[in-house]
Amino acid sequence: MKIYARQRHRVLQVITRLMVPFVLMFGLYVQFHGDYGPGGGFQAGVIFASAFILYGLIFGLQRTRRVLPPSVLRWLMALGVLIYAGTGVLTMLLGGNLLDYDVLAHDPLHGQHWGIFAVELGVGVTVTAVMVSLFYGFASKR
């Protein structure tokens, strides 16, 4: 993939510098506000990853790799699934069914809240890591 870098595209670089924090912030908003509005872990993961992809397109892979190294991505991919599955195992250990969040807190509604929070976080982490590593995979080879 053609990565625009070095001294060219000064305007794009400045705009990207400005945009990336807002994109990341919006990703976090979608992640943690998904209970109340549209969105959730999957959408948030994609938006979060798109910030890194934008950065990678404009500033080159090497800089992006320093922020989010592929070795870390590999762990994050597995971590998300582990958070999700771990929540399920935890509910079983606490005496409920798999992914029955009622048992996570004294009040079933609070338990549901914690459970959904953890599960969505797991989805978000895995999706972010997979999307960014898809980009790394395509961009680092040609």
Partner: peptide, 26 residues
Amino acid sequence: GPPNVVTSVLASYRGYDTLGETVVVF
């Protein structure tokens, strides 16, 4: 609990399916 019913269905009622989807992405 959540006012967004989609989140309730996705993460709680059908949490098992979403676990499968996450594994697919993985």
